Amino acid sequence: MGTRYFADKQGAQNYAIYRPSYPDSVFASCINFLKNGATNEVNKFPFAVDVGCGTGHQSTVPLAKYFDSVLGIDISKEQISEAKKSKHPENVDFKVSAGEALPVENETVSLLQVAAAAHWMDLAKFYKEADRVLTPGGVVALYSYAGAAQTSNHPKSAEIDPILKEIAERPVERGFFVPGNDMVRRRYTDECFQIPYSDKTRIDNIPHPITNTVEDYIKFCKTLSQFRRMEEAEPDLTKQWMEDATSRLLNALETTDMSSQFTYYLEVHMLLGRKPHQPK
């Protein structure tokens, strides 16, 4: 995991506060795929590893009810520090580590998942490491959300959604997307993402509903790597534009209160693959 966009303390704290967790359907998809390949009926699996776990609540903690133990790893010491300080179940632990060199024994991991981080990794090295640590029949899962936020069944969607799209596209227009961001935008369809197991599947367009205040939505956007680069390179221009976009969003929502809530949707895409029960 060679790219570090959330290594500073403030970035890690903002990540912990404003990054949303994933919908239950994402974790259910992982578990169902894992169960479908099990050789006997299993209610709870031994061990899961969440790579690029960030501050833990987004994708690590939700696994706790499905596994005897869960390990979240991230290359950022600050992210892991925030994760360790957070409230989490006793069967969840966190360590600083790269995803291409996992701190676990051979063939011990039932589920190896990467949420919104695979696009920053050396995937050839990661898949080799995945094959080392996964149990026979173990599952590797990569997923992320992509695209502009959209409202649904909101009476003002026609006014709100173009502003949400503008906010999402601004870093692209200003040239602050890097290859990793483009890979997310292409929804992990690049050849390098293709899981090297024959038993694999892809799930697209999983709805990811999020209810936030206007203020928290804007702060969530600012945790995205492309926004961080844009703010660093063009602080005054970005500040002026974001204030204008926020004002127009409030007007579309017919409010002046930054604490007003609204519900928007992102879409999650997933890649799932199963290590063979028998050696190749």
Score class of each variant (00 low, 15 high):
2 G>V: 10
3 T>W: 04
10 Q>P: 09
13 Q>N: 09
15 Y>R: 15
16 A>H: 10
18 Y>H: 13
19 R>E: 01
27 F>Q: 08
27 F>E: 07
28 A>F: 11
33 F>S: 11
35 K>E: 08
43 N>P: 02
45 F>H: 12
46 P>E: 15
48 A>C: 04
52 G>Y: 01
57 H>N: 06
57 H>R: 05
60 T>E: 03
61 V>W: 00
61 V>P: 03
66 Y>G: 05
68 D>Y: 03
80 I>D: 03
82 E>H: 05
84 K>Q: 13
86 S>L: 12
90 E>P: 07
91 N>Q: 00
91 N>H: 01
94 F>E: 04
101 A>Q: 11
103 P>W: 04
106 N>G: 02
106 N>W: 02
107 E>K: 09
116 A>R: 03
117 A>Y: 05
118 A>V: 06
123 L>Q: 10
123 L>I: 14
128 K>L: 14
133 V>K: 09
134 L>M: 04
135 T>A: 09
136 P>V: 06
137 G>M: 07
140 V>N: 00
140 V>E: 06
144 S>T: 09
144 S>L: 13
145 Y>K: 06
147 G>Y: 04
147 G>F: 05
157 S>Y: 07
165 K>Q: 00
167 I>D: 02
170 R>F: 08
172 V>C: 12
182 D>P: 12
195 I>R: 05
198 S>N: 05
201 T>N: 12
201 T>L: 11
202 R>L: 05
203 I>S: 02
208 H>A: 14
211 T>P: 08
211 T>R: 03
223 T>C: 07
223 T>G: 04
225 S>I: 04
227 F>C: 02
228 R>Q: 15
231 E>I: 11
232 E>N: 13
233 A>M: 12
239 K>F: 08
242 M>Q: 15
242 M>K: 15
246 T>G: 02
247 S>N: 13
257 D>R: 07
259 S>G: 13
262 F>E: 01
271 L>F: 03
271 L>V: 07
274 R>E: 05
275 K>E: 11
280 K>F: 06
